[in-house]
Amino acid sequence: MNFPKNIKKILGNRPSSLDTIGMSNAQVICFDEMVLKIEKQSEESDMEHKMMTWLADKLPVPRILCLEKENGMS
């Protein structure tokens, strides 16, 4: 799969698996210590990022390592 440069730098050569359990239309790739979520850029995906950022110092939520938007994908 072709990832943006910043994402490639974070992922390196880590082994991964594709999540097949989720119910969203997003593609979710699981790594030992992180998750990569790939979906069409939308108001919902933008709000999800804003919500996770806002919640970060209020609740234990996953830390966002990077956000990339390219060719209509987030």
Rank of each mutant, 00 (worst) to 15 (best):
M1H: 13
M1R: 12
N2F: 13
N6R: 15
I7S: 00
K9A: 10
L11E: 00
L11N: 00
L11T: 01
L11A: 00
G12V: 07
G12E: 05
G12R: 07
N13H: 11
R14Q: 15
R14I: 14
P15G: 07
P15A: 04
P15L: 08
S16T: 06
S17G: 11
S17W: 14
T20S: 05
T20W: 02
T20G: 02
I21T: 13
M23I: 13
M23H: 12
S24K: 14
S24F: 12
N25Q: 13
N25M: 13
A26F: 03
A26S: 12
V28P: 05
I29L: 09
I29Q: 06
C30T: 05
F31E: 05
F31V: 07
F31W: 12
F31L: 06
D32R: 13
D32W: 10
M34P: 03
V35A: 12
L36H: 06
K37A: 01
I38D: 03
E39R: 09
S42V: 15
S42H: 08
S42D: 07
E43G: 05
E43S: 14
D46I: 14
D46E: 10
M47P: 02
E48C: 03
H49F: 08
K50I: 11
K50R: 14
M51G: 09
M51D: 01
M52A: 04
T53L: 14
T53E: 11
W54G: 01
L55N: 01
A56S: 13
K58S: 11
K58G: 02
V61S: 12
R63T: 15
L65R: 04
L65T: 03
C66A: 12
E68N: 07
K69V: 13
E70F: 09
S74F: 00
